[in-house]
Design a protein around this nucleic acid. Structure first.
Lengths: 197, 197
DNA sequence: CTAAGTGATGACACCCAGTCCCATCACGCG
DNA sequence: CGCGTGATGGGACTGGGTGTCATCACTTAG
């Protein structure tokens, strides 16, 4: 199928990550990324809509996985079970080998508000994917949106813990405890039982 | 105090809103905005860090209000009461006269992903302002973040309802019912009682 | 074996957002 | 009246992003 080097997109992603880590996001130009990948600016923008997008390649795949996982759960499952299934479906992206890459990527994103902004857009995409999937199985709009926010919050805190420098705990474990924790807080928030001050 | 026309910033905002509504966000140049306001590109960027920012002038004020409102609630108040106070503090921004402006602004933002992205950043700012204020009064990290998300969700749905074309209901009313509704759903989500399918 | 076709790439021109630097002008103040 | 301050104007410059057209690698029809 593939002619030339079939890895163009991958090479661009790797080159970008390396250069961003080396000189920072703002200080590296798209031309430099393309040069290091042995390509040109034109080709870069044929593979990525944005300079930012080169760091968020996997996010759309993730939305699809979340959506599929929820749609595949048993009709009788609770919403909590749906969220758990969604979080689990992301596990393949969090193998120990990718740990260092994720760490590096996180540092780059945290350093530039332009990238944090894009991350929020991707996160919103995840949220609406979850909400849509929940609505498709009968949840009302308000519940679907709230549950989706809760799921995304669980996911991002789980990811943050997993990507922490010295973490060795597997992702799924972290994700489940994060979700359970949030559900407990939601119950308390709703009933206003133990809320201090 | 002010020399020249003291309204430079306001004029730029009005000019931008008018031109965006007329030709769309992408099709209008910063130069065109500045020209209509009787100013120049240099001056535009001296008042706004971004082309986008010209549409989000009030957001930082809002964060401050939310934060202050929460810090001003009685120490014995529940978190739900804190959120209600925060939502109420935004009321001055939602007078009937501003209704049409808000409607126009919303349409412009909805039409351009670049602007939706910026809106998410502002919303995240609101969320962390709320979370910080809650943490400051003793809430634990997880609860603070979840409650903040819930508050922002209530705020944005309330705003959407208030800004709807044919709405005449006052903002505070809408906001309170939105918040109460979300709290009820949170309770259900936490206890997994009535969650269907 | 060759010629047409296809798809990824390169090269180049172009527009505009955003940054810098410096000149200028309006006003208050001594 | 002269000076300092602060907002503005102007112009040069970088880099992201969009086009268009030529080119080259490889496939497939003939």
């Amino acid at each position: 199928m593939a002619r030339w080097e079939p890895n163009a997109r991958d090479r661009l992603e790797r080159a970008a990550l390396a250069l961003f880590a080396e000189h920072g996001y703002d200080a590296t130009t798209v031309n430099e990324i393309a040069d290091r990948a042995g390509l040109t600016k034109s080709t870069f923008f044929r593979h990525f809509a944005d300079k930012r997008e080169v760091l968020f390649g996997g996010q759309d795949v993730l939305s699809q996985r979340f959506s599929d996982a929820i749609r595949a759960t048993a009709p009788a499952a609770t919403i909590g079970a749906c969220l758990a299934a969604a979080l689990e479906s992301a596990a393949p992206a969090f193998t120990p080998e990718r740990h260092d890459l994720a760490l590096q990527r996180r540092a780059i994103i945290a350093a530039t508000s332009e990238l944090r902004e894009r991350e929020l857009l991707k996160r919103a995409g995840l949220s609406s994917a979850i909400a849509d999937a929940l609505r498709a199985r009968g949840a009302d709009d308000t519940t679907a949106r709230l549950a989706a926010e809760l799921g995304v919050l669980a996911f991002s805190t789980a990811f943050a813990h997993w990507a922490a420098p010295k973490n060795r705990q597997p992702y799924t474990e972290i994700a489940h405890t994060a979700l359970r924790d949030l559900q407990a807080r939601a119950a308390a928030l709703g009933s206003e039982a133990d809320l201090r001050a």
